[in-house]
Amino acid sequence: MNTLVKNAFDIERLHSKGTLKAPYQKKDKNYMYIYDNQKNTIQYITSSFTRLTGHPQREVTRLFLDNIIHEDDLSYFYKCEEKSINFMNQHSFEDIFNYILIYTYRIKTLKGNFIRILQESQALEIDYNGALSKTLITHKEIEDYVSRPFDDFKIYDKSQHTYIDHNNCYNLTKREIEIVTLIKKGLSSLQISESLNISNNTVRTHRKNILSKSNCNSFIELVKKLSY
């Protein structure tokens, strides 16, 4: 079993010390919780949840958190959740700990007003079969955020200290993307070389590099991953 912290209650200690930080984290304006992916439950949430939202910790369930999302943001929230799952499914269990998945939406406080929060999700633990079992989620209030762009979904690569294009999650070059597009259309290497006016050997080299970057054994596997 691989895990980011020793146990759930380390979260409160590390959070209060400021040890666990994501790109946008700000003290006293955020809270963290552990989501059990396999049981669909909230395992633990930091006490700052109550200070920020007014809601008691004891009321927190996954359904409760879904129910306090602004109704106009629900479809966007579920769309981002789907993107997050698909992105994680495209990577090996060794790699998923490198990424933080980020987007914003509004939640309702106990007083009845709405605040915009920025959600940052990162893999916390995998089980013995390599499946994601727990996720660490941070919610940070965005005080000066008036409106959200149409799509503010981002992926932060902790190992590279930079954001990546989630539409190009394997960081393929422009030429490699062109080749993948033609492969998805059913073109052979020879047809691709003729279409792009490059040699067949160059196409083979690109194909080899694409499989290496995507950690796939075949293009059938790659196309299946990209179809999510």
Rank of each mutant, 00 (worst) to 15 (best):
G112P: 05
E120L: 09
K111N: 02
R148K: 14
Q122S: 12
Q122N: 09
R116I: 13
I155C: 09
D152L: 07
A131E: 15
T109P: 01
G186Q: 06
D157R: 03
K185R: 09
K184E: 15
K174I: 15
D152S: 02
D165I: 03
S159E: 11
G130H: 02
H139G: 07
G186L: 06
Q160L: 07
N171I: 04
D127I: 05
H166R: 05
A131H: 10
H161L: 07
N168C: 04
E143C: 11
D144V: 07
S159C: 00
L124D: 05
I137M: 03
P149F: 11
R116Y: 09
K184A: 14
F114H: 08
L132A: 07
T135H: 02
P149I: 13
S121C: 03
N171A: 11
R175P: 01
G112N: 03
I164V: 07
H161N: 14
S121K: 15
T173L: 13
I177P: 00
I179P: 01
E143A: 14
F150D: 15
L187F: 13
D165T: 01
I177R: 07
C169N: 09
T135F: 02
T181L: 09
P149W: 12
T181I: 11
D157A: 03
T135G: 01
K108H: 00
K174Y: 15
T138N: 14
Y145R: 09
D144Y: 13
G130S: 02
V180W: 09
L136N: 05
I183Q: 05
L136I: 06
D152I: 10
K140R: 15
N113A: 05
S188F: 11
E143K: 14
K134T: 05
K108W: 02
D151Y: 06
L187M: 13
E143W: 08
L136W: 05
F153E: 01
Y156L: 04
F153R: 09
N167L: 13
I117Y: 05
K158C: 00
I155N: 04
Y163Q: 05
D144N: 14
Y156A: 06
Q119E: 11
S147N: 14
A131R: 08
N113R: 15
G112D: 02
Y163K: 03
T173S: 15
Q119A: 05
S147A: 12
S159V: 00
T109Q: 08
I115Y: 08
K108Y: 01
K154D: 04
L118H: 06
E176Q: 14
R148I: 13
I177S: 10
K111W: 00
S121E: 13
I179K: 02
I142A: 15
H139A: 08
D144A: 13
T173Q: 08
